[in-house]
Simulated assay, not measured.
Amino acid sequence: MKAIDAHIHLDKYPKDERERIINSLGENQVEALISVSMDLASCTENLRLFENCPRILPAFGYHPEQQLPSDSELDKLFTWIGGNKEKMAAIGEVGLPYYLRAEDKTGAFSYERYVELLEQFILFANKFNKPVILHAVYDDAPIACGLLEKHNIEKAHFHWFKGDKKTVERMIANGYHVSFTPDVLYEKETREVADQYPLQLMMAETDGPWPFEGRFSGKMTHPAMILDVVKELAFIKGIPVEQASSILHANTKRFYKLKDIF
């Protein structure tokens, strides 16, 4: 079994943990990592990691669950991404601030500006012919779908997705991919999405260093956990583990155009 972690924040691990992960990829049959970015500093670090280890494929973006960047910060970010477009695997992580908005008590939350920023990143993905990695859950997902449809984006990857059945059906019809974390072993709503979604549009991820519960409680999130995700998805779909592994691995390589790299 070979695995690709389709979504990880490798730059956010402490240095010693990051080195342990990189040095153990081969022995854990992890072929590559898609390391997503939070902001310009995160983009810069992910690029550095890629330049030191070609198994780490960087995605450049601005995570939506934080305050919006200033105009000057955004200009710097867009300029930097444009200058490094040949080295990025995707635009990401970008999306909409579901949790940040839910926590806001001021009543002055500027949701429209987040939607505008997401559209700018989608236009970037279209311009550079790159996939887009999305953080868009629950009632944010239909809005993200609308923007993708507006700009005829087909290469969309919804990570750790949660949403209603109607939105799931819309995403499947559009050919959007979703990826599942180790919480598919114990989280009911994640398992329900996995049951509904076709295996041919699935990938596996850790979203590390995010920690997990159940059998993973107290453990550092490692890309090797992808193998547990693969086994659980095989169980949910009622197929042999080797078959599920082969399909998920091929999906990820095809989606991120890794066939010419690995």
Results as ranks from 00 to 15, higher is better:
residue 7 H to M: 07
residue 227 L to D: 11
residue 173 A to Y: 00
residue 124 F to H: 02
residue 98 Y to H: 12
residue 184 V to N: 12
residue 212 F to H: 15
residue 198 P to L: 11
residue 21 I to L: 09
residue 241 V to S: 05
residue 49 L to D: 10
residue 240 P to N: 10
residue 173 A to M: 01
residue 244 A to C: 15
residue 229 V to Y: 04
residue 115 V to H: 09
residue 82 G to A: 05
residue 46 N to F: 06
residue 111 Y to A: 06
residue 251 N to Q: 01
residue 161 F to R: 08
residue 34 I to T: 00
residue 64 P to K: 08
residue 97 P to H: 06
residue 234 A to D: 07
residue 235 F to T: 14
residue 189 E to C: 10
residue 190 T to L: 09
residue 244 A to D: 04
residue 63 H to C: 08
residue 132 V to I: 14
residue 255 F to D: 02
residue 157 H to I: 03
residue 51 E to P: 03
residue 44 T to C: 06
residue 241 V to Q: 11
residue 181 T to K: 03
residue 31 E to W: 00
residue 133 I to K: 03
residue 76 K to C: 03
residue 85 K to S: 10
residue 43 C to N: 03
residue 69 P to S: 02
residue 226 I to S: 00
residue 87 K to D: 07
residue 13 Y to D: 13
residue 151 H to E: 06
residue 67 Q to P: 11
residue 256 Y to Q: 02
residue 176 Y to L: 04
residue 233 L to V: 11
residue 92 G to L: 08
residue 98 Y to N: 11
residue 66 Q to W: 09
residue 217 S to M: 13
residue 249 H to M: 04
residue 257 K to F: 05
residue 161 F to M: 09
residue 161 F to A: 02
residue 31 E to N: 05
residue 125 A to E: 14
residue 189 E to W: 12
residue 174 N to L: 09
residue 71 D to A: 14
residue 76 K to E: 14
residue 33 L to T: 09
residue 101 R to C: 02
residue 223 P to S: 07
residue 167 T to H: 04
residue 137 V to T: 11
residue 57 L to D: 05
residue 120 Q to Y: 08
residue 112 E to L: 07
residue 186 Y to F: 11
residue 115 V to C: 15
residue 82 G to Q: 07
residue 188 K to E: 12
